[in-house]
Amino acid sequence: MPVLLAVWAIAASRVPSYVLPEPWAVAAEAWRWIVTGRLWPQVWASLLREAGGFGAATLAALVIGVSAGIYRPFREFAQPLLGLFMAIPPIAWAPLSLIFFGLGYLSIAVVIFIAAAFPMAVAIQDGVLAIRDGEVKAARVLGARRTQLLIHVYLPAALPFLTSALRIGFAQAWRALVAAEMIGASQGIGWMVAVGGQIGNANQVLLGIAVIGLIAWLMESLVFQRLERRYESWRGH
């Protein structure tokens, strides 16, 4: 981080401040947004949208991924659709979502859902498919029924893959959130960046980018890395 700040300061000293402000100028902008109470509503609005879209995407991915991993006919049906949705950039759905749901929470949450659900479903499906046939057969010999297989065999074995899927899904969802807010929102971090660009306020743009990166870093270090360390030892067992 000190090296990055030093490079930033050196680069900023060689160009006009309206092109690349100095780090302390962005820090001063952040202080103004904090003391005036304007920053937290933007962060809170983005986090609420992310929670709704990403939460729904996680539930859908779990159902689709486990079902595709267990049932071959469903997997053959779902795989082309998963590939299709993953090939289309999530932000391409934003105009259509705005037409259907209007400007607001739901339209952006739908874009987040599309961005995160399908990559996570593929990762969870791969985790279920990695389960050894011998483990399933042994459970069946011991009298396990379909529900017991799901709870005691498939889901525990897929947990390490689920943590990886959550990491992938959150990254996709967070990028889609910011992009969607830049197009169709009146509040949020992405909106903050977009407005800063429109009025030529580079300090505000860089502040928004810093907030986006900080939240992503906090999620990675405080949530996903801990989950992965906890369940990494389950792989192969």
Rank of each mutant, 00 (worst) to 15 (best):
L5M: 12
V7G: 06
W8R: 06
A9K: 10
I10F: 12
A11F: 08
R14T: 10
V15D: 04
P16H: 11
P23M: 06
A25R: 15
A28T: 10
A28W: 09
A28N: 09
E29N: 09
W31Y: 12
R32A: 13
R32N: 13
I34C: 08
V35K: 11
L39D: 01
L39I: 04
W40C: 04
P41E: 04
Q42D: 14
Q42G: 02
V43I: 15
V43M: 12
A45T: 13
R49D: 03
E50F: 14
G52A: 11
G52S: 06
V63W: 13
I64F: 08
G65I: 02
S67H: 03
S67N: 02
S67T: 13
A68Y: 07
Y71R: 11
P73S: 08
R75N: 12
F77M: 13
Q79A: 13
Q79S: 12
L82T: 03
L82A: 07
G83C: 04
G83T: 08
M86N: 05
I88S: 05
I91G: 03
I91V: 15
P95I: 00
L96W: 09
L98A: 06
F100W: 15
F101L: 14
F101I: 06
G102A: 03
L103Q: 13
S107A: 15
I108G: 02
I108T: 05
A109I: 03
A115S: 13
A117Q: 05
A117F: 15
P119W: 04
M120W: 05
M120F: 04
A121V: 02
I124P: 01
Q125E: 14
G127Q: 00
R132K: 11
E135S: 09
K137D: 15
A138M: 14
A139E: 03
A139Y: 08
V141F: 09
L142H: 09
L142W: 08
G143E: 11
A144H: 06
R145C: 09
R145W: 06
R145L: 07
T147C: 04
T147W: 14
L149V: 08
L149C: 06
L149I: 06
H152Q: 11
Y154Q: 00
P160C: 08
L162E: 01
L162G: 04
T163W: 09
L166K: 03
L166D: 04
R167F: 01
I168Q: 08
G169F: 05
F170A: 11
Q172W: 08
A173I: 05
L177K: 01
V178H: 02
A179K: 01
A180L: 02
M182A: 14
M182E: 06
I183S: 01
A185S: 14
S186E: 10
S186M: 11
S186A: 11
Q187L: 13
Q187N: 10
G188P: 12
M192F: 15
A194S: 14
I199W: 06
G200Q: 04
G200I: 07
N201P: 03
N201L: 04
Q204V: 10
I209K: 01
I209C: 05
I212Y: 07
I212D: 00
I212H: 01
L214V: 12
A216Q: 09
E220N: 14
S221M: 13
V223L: 14
F224R: 05
E228C: 08
R230S: 05
E232H: 13
W234P: 00
W234F: 13
R235N: 03
G236V: 10
H237D: 09
